[in-house]
Amino acid sequence: MSGHRSHRHRPVVLGLALLLLATGCSGSGDAERAEPPASPAAASSVAASAPPASPFWVDPHSDAARQVAQWEAQGRNSDAQVLRRISERPMALWGPGDDPGPEIRRAVTASKAAGKTVVLTAYNIPFRDCGQHSAGGAPDAAAYRRWIGAFADNIGDARAIVILEPDAVPHIIDGCTQADHHGERYRLLSEAVDRLKRQPNTRVYIDAGNPAWIPNASDLAEPLFRAGLERADGFSLNVSNFQPDSAGRAYGAKLSKATGGKHFVIDTSRNGDGPLPGDRGQTWCNPPGRALGAPPTDRTGDALVDAYLWIKRPGESDGQCRGGPSAGTWWPDYALGLARRARD
């Protein structure tokens, strides 16, 4: 299951938001509390650490950017400065489930003007997230085909990376998605790859879960090919999860070998301190004490890893657990904690 934004309940919020381990998340427990204001020295340290150059587009209207502006207006300058570790870095834009066109057009127009690559997430497959925190998706196959068509149309000739349907394939393998939906899901994913690849500068990565979900990476190979991997650019790992980069690279290398050398991308948005120790069923949903991971870059030092990306938007809730709001809702205190503990 995922801490993704549910698109059933609202129009997209700028600064949109997804996984994992298909178990329920407790609705009890303490929320991560806001930490005390940073010292002037800490704020200066953050100010001196400018974000590294990145080929990916930064959304100036994200929830994090809006929060920075709000806190500055309120005189919370030290907190605002810390939060710039999120607001000034590129994150994936999640195409809204009703009509993805306007938001994608906005992002594409701005990214082209900036000469950057826009990172997008397509997350609207029917029977999404098995009815859990991010349940929803298109009502049927015909609606999904229209939606993914509009998604692709509005990318146009822009340079884009699309993360295709987080959780969709792993949820087939782990049995969370009902068996009578498997055939249709494979067809829709395969068709989505073909539709998106009609855009001349779009790269597509089919989601493959995370290293702690499907233990044997080779079990994903045949399902990913049924979902169109042969024609995609590769697969994505660790979306909305907290597995360290080393685990992602090792797991990805095994899956790459099983798929004939396919490349992959890794979500590093919140894995700076790895997963929360303890019961697997409680580690993925708003775990306390986590930190931002490696900033987005295409300079990974690994020939198989095309990019480290912030696919899950840091600061957006995984769901109503540990005091968090609904999946995908901006949670300033949690975002501030992630940013304070970041090493970069």
Rank of each mutant, 00 (worst) to 15 (best):
Ser218Ala: 15
Arg198His: 08
Ala179Asn: 12
Arg185Leu: 04
Val204Gln: 13
Asp207Asn: 08
Val169Pro: 10
Ser190Phe: 06
Pro170Gly: 00
Ile172Gln: 13
Ala221Tyr: 02
Pro215Glu: 09
Ala208Gln: 13
Ala208Val: 09
Asp194Phe: 00
Ala208Trp: 09
Ala192Tyr: 06
Arg185Asn: 00
Ser190His: 10
Glu222Met: 06
Asp207Thr: 02
Ser218Tyr: 05
Val193Ile: 10
Pro211Gln: 03
Ala217Arg: 01
Thr177Pro: 07
Ala179Tyr: 05
Glu184Ala: 07
Pro211Gly: 04
Asn201Glu: 11
Ser218Gln: 12
Lys197Cys: 06
His181Trp: 10
Ile214Phe: 05
Gly183Tyr: 10
Gly209His: 03
Asp174Val: 04
Ala212Glu: 15
Pro211Asn: 05
Asp207Ile: 03
Asp219His: 15
Leu188Arg: 01
Asp219Trp: 04
Pro223Ala: 05
Glu222Cys: 09
Thr202Val: 08
Asn201Gln: 15
Ser218His: 09
Gln199Gly: 09
Ala179Phe: 07
Gln199Met: 08
Pro200His: 04
Arg185Ala: 00
Ile206Gly: 15
Cys176Gln: 00
Glu184Val: 08
Thr177Cys: 05
Glu184Cys: 01
Ala168Phe: 14
Cys176Ile: 01
Asn210Trp: 02
Glu222Leu: 10
Val204Met: 13
Ile214Tyr: 04
Tyr205Val: 08
Pro170Met: 00
His182Gly: 01
Arg195Glu: 15
Ala208Thr: 12
His181Asp: 06
Leu196Glu: 07
Pro170Arg: 02
Asp194Ile: 02
Glu222Tyr: 06
Leu189Asp: 11
Pro170Tyr: 01
Gln178Pro: 11
Gln199Tyr: 06
Pro170Val: 03
Asn216Trp: 03
Asp194Lys: 02
Val204Cys: 11
Asp207His: 04
Asn201Cys: 14
Asn210Glu: 03
Ala208Ile: 12
